[in-house]
Design a protein around this nucleic acid. Structure first.
Lengths: 229, 229
DNA sequence: GAGTGGTCTAGACCACGTT
DNA sequence: ACGTGGTCTAGACCACTCT
């Protein structure tokens, strides 16, 4: 029975988790491992490449492969569209546009997105409901310099998030999670007390270095974002 | 000049982002792509496997490879040890143990970790400071059923997080982000107003299906957790 | 300079799921 | 049944970087 890349990977992982191969330890090179496991070097290579991707080992040409000193733990979060997130909970989704206006980008937004001083932006605020109850308040700014067609789009039925995903499916983004106190306006829309602790997601998006949009999503009190790793 | 797997990957990515290959579109099979790009099938395979990992395409045997309907965006967060996080900001780290006691696991904790009714746990609370200012308040519960040696450990100098990482380096975990209002106790330790909005991370950890530990980390007001993707 | 990982090849067999 | 992706092989050449 020859070893598959999964066999090699899990065996090496076991040696590391059991402490047999301690942090900093130099692993045998790929040729030797291939001989040990009775498989081709490419098979070992794939196992080791995946372990390196996952942050378990560190590889450098000539220097070889070592167990990472501080095991680098990382979690992956999928960034869902609000509608999908709500529908996956078997709740009924409802969307409402609260306000819409075009104006020059305020200074704080220009700083965040590195926008030109006179760049016009479309400002939107909207609400997302789950089973009729307020779920998320969304404040959105879209650069009209890069996406002039946003001014013609109808955001009364479809949310800006979904419009953007269908218009500009791939882009670079920076995402930030934080907690903020509910302003009077937010409290009003979300139906919570002023000052309530709200989970907040902020995301800046660029396409080839040009700023597209900035969004701040404030969730109803008690919202949790979870992941396994 | 033959195509590398990076060439193939970025060319296919370009066809998708440009809209030439729209969502749902069936891609040519690996043999055909290999011929198109003038490379081996294994090269195409690696390119496509990475695109599938990144959520750009969806692959199924016999059914072939399709552009994902809703491009699945995902962000990777590395989960740092508090000390490392603070030191990376070029701040001075200080740790303090606030309280420590052994007791039977309360009901809510047993429910979260699926612990036996009579399982004793070590409860710890500690503070982490950056440049002398409160940075994070940590509430930690460690199962003594699985980790009896935790009772002997000295948590007055080294934090439970670092002790655990060096004792049980790899494990399964569930992580949750949320916002909570500062309790009087939290406000006292973090030096903030009662009811202030605090960014909170909760993490449950298992080793081979057995619960190890649960931790709630509450950050000082204004804390942000960021990532690019 | 020499040893390591990084990648490609041409071929093969297999596992799975659609038809 | 059959076409697709999933994986393995044995060999080769290359790129990086440590000494």
């Amino acid at each position: 029975m020859k070893a598959t890349f999964r066999d090699v990977k899990s065996d090496i992982m076991a040696k590391i988790t059991s402490g047999e191969w301690e942090p900093g330890r130099l692993l045998p090179n790929e040729m030797d491992l291939a001989e040990i496991y009775g498989c081709a070097r490419a098979t070992v290579n794939r196992a080791m490449r995946e372990l390196a991707d996952e942050g378990v080992v560190e590889r450098r040409r000539k220097a070889g492969t070592r167990v990472r000193m501080a095991p680098l733990r990382q979690a992956r979060f999928s960034i869902p569209i609000v509608r999908v997130e709500i529908e996956e909970q078997n709740s009924t989704y409802r969307y409402a546009l609260v306000s819409q206006e075009v104006a020059a980008a305020p200074q704080w937004l220009r700083a965040r997105l590195q926008l030109a001083a006179d760049c016009p932006v479309l400002s939107l605020t909207c609400m997302h409901y789950a089973d009729g109850a307020p779920y998320q308040f969304e404040e959105r700014w879209i650069s009209l310099g890069l996406l002039p067609q946003a001014q013609e789009a109808d955001f009364s039925e479809i949310g800006p998030n979904e419009w953007l995903v269908s218009t500009v499916p791939f882009s670079d983004a920076e995402i930030a999670f934080s907690a903020t106190a509910a302003t009077p306006d937010l409290a009003d829309h979300l139906g919570c007390a002023q000052g309530a602790a709200l989970f907040t997601v902020e995301r800046s998006t660029w396409l080839k270095g040009e700023a597209i949009t900035f969004v701040r999503q404030s969730f109803r009190p008690g919202h949790r974002m979870t992941s396994r790793y």
